[in-house]
């Protein structure tokens, strides 16, 4: 048996293969979609703005994902968390998966894994615990999309309302979640205050876009309101954190 190390060059090699694959797939879809956008008459200016604004918007959540990699790395080394958080999944899934398997093996999450069998058990659980959704995409997406197209063609107005309802269903669930700690007292209102700051910034930006004709701001409105609210959360937590 080879000597096991959670940060071994072999594990970095495996991670590199998967990350290169993710980059290649993303580039493939980016190039094809950009070409199609031009064929559809979408101006290059809009495509560039979409890329720039999405890049800006991604910075803060990506930094949070990096924080997740650091959290898991204390137990599992860098390669596996790096790999897992670059593909399907999120810290909210990977951490319970690691913790559930560690508990099943009576391991502590506070020290680095030394047993390769424990490491591979966690790697299997992280992989198998989230994979069914991708099989649905692989075998069911085409049928599902044709259902949406037929709904839209039967009654275009209802099709539009239906889509807006789907968006609002998701937004309602996450806005509702912000209220889950209100029974804790003032600190439980911090997420609501942060969301209100973000909403207020977005509203001000909306006024600037419509009234002052600052059209360029439209693409950057969400990244600005999100980063502004995150910055505001620091004094708000100091004030309301008790």
């Amino acid at each position: 048996m080879r000597t096991f190390n959670v940060n071994s060059p072999f594990l970095y090699g495996v991670t590199a293969v998967v990350i290169v694959y993710v980059l290649a797939q993303s580039l493939f879809f980016l190039i094809r979609a950009s070409r199609r956008a031009r064929e559809l008459g979408i101006q290059t200016r809009i495509i560039k703005k979409t890329i720039l604004s999405t890049s800006l918007f991604t910075i803060a959540p990506a930094a949070a994902i990096l924080l997740g990699v650091i959290t898991l790395s204390k137990f599992m080394g860098l390669p596996l968390p790096w790999l897992r958080l670059s593909i399907l999944g999120a810290l909210t899934y990977e951490l319970p998966a690691a913790s559930s398997t560690a508990t099943a093996m009576n391991l502590s999450l506070s020290a680095s894994i030394t047993d390769p069998k424990a490491y591979t058990a966690i790697a299997w659980v992280m992989t198998l615990g989230i994979i069914p959704g991708i099989f649905v995409v692989l075998f069911g997406l085409k049928k599902m999309q044709s259902g949406i197209v037929s709904l839209k063609s039967k009654d275009p107005k209802w099709g539009e309302i239906f889509m807006s309802s789907m968006f609002l269903g998701m937004i309602s669930a996450f806005v509702g979640m912000l209220f889950s700690d209100v029974r804790m007292g003032l600190p439980g209102f911090i997420p609501i205050a942060v969301a209100l700051v973000s909403a207020l910034l977005m509203a001000v930006e909306g006024i600037l876009i419509k009234v002052c004709k600052w059209g360029w701001l439209e693409q950057y409105a969400l990244p600005i309101s999100m980063l502004g609210a995150m910055a505001a959360s620091i004094p708000l937590t100091a004030l309301m954190g008790c």
């Binding site: 803060a60 959540p61 949070a64 937004i171 996450f174 806005v175 979640m177 912000l178 911090i190 997420p191 609501i192 942060v194 969301a195 209100l196 700051v197 973000s198 909403a199 910034l201 977005m202 409105a221 969400l222 309101s225 999100m226 980063l227 609210a229 995150m230 959360s233 937590t237």
Partner: peptide
Amino acid sequence: NILPALFGG
């Protein structure tokens, strides 16, 4: 507070 900042806006 990433999620509140995101879903507020």
